[in-house]
Amino acid sequence: MSRLATDTLAAVALRLAKMLLQAAAIVVLVFLLVRVVPGDTVDVLAAQGDLTEAQQQAMRHELGLDRSAGAQLVAWSAAALSGDFGQSIRFHRPVADMLATALPTTLTFASLSFAVGIVIAFTIAIAAVTSGTGKAVALVDAVNIWSIAFPTFCVGVLGILIVSVWLGWLPVLGSMVLPVVIIGIDNAGQIVKPLHEELREATAAAHVRTARAKGLHPIRVVVVHLLPTALPIALTLSGLVLAGLVAGTLTMEVLFGLPGIGSLLLNAIHGRDYPVVQAAIAVIVVALVAINAATDILHRLIDPRVSA
């Protein structure tokens, strides 16, 4: 027993180490990509106001932009680890403050859409394998085709058009209801088909047949014997949804004027506010890497076979 526990612990530690490596690799990549962009922050400022060449040089020195990329990376990382992401060039505020202001909106939005998507997908998929009728299966296909055919930003635009312009129901902008529904359905559509296939295979699985041969009540068969089998795939699919949420969050925040990380990032990109760009992407990516690691570890803890 204790040996098993040590094995699990070692595997978890290994996964966490991989997570840190991934996060570091991505942060470095993002840092370098932002450095490749022609023109730096000072150029942007110079274009806005009158800055003499000397002032520009002084500013570059002050911001550390005259040092090598490696040195800048080390300095930035060290500061970031202590929660200091530098100053916004446009707003002259600490980036960390701006992130802290934007984060709750994005977290609320992302978790609500995630929950809506998971609930819809599971409800439809379970209904489709248990009802035995074609209607629920058709619903699986319909939701799946919907998410393939209608990119979320198109649905969002049409949604605003219909709800706000034609029906006159206000206010749409600034409200999370419509975007959460749109992204929720889209998330559901991305996973409902593989989820349904997995569940259908699981209903034909030998151990589910055994449970039925024992004469167990169908609800018990589904809850105790069928669903746990689908958990690993459900975890994998949830990871997919989370990655998809990034695109959804970006577009919906911009479209519906939600003041989250997505809006912050895009405004920063357009304003060439690189410290903000870098920090916002770092936050998003580190969150994704951490969630990936968490799903892997959860999978390991749920399935007794993995630790064998």
């Binding site: 690799a25 991505i26 990034v246």
Partner: peptide, 21 residues
Amino acid sequence: VDLIRAIPPILLALLLVVALG
């Protein structure tokens, strides 16, 4: 590839477009 797999395509594309023009 495994190391950078966690970046969703949209985010990577966005960064690359910023970098490439």
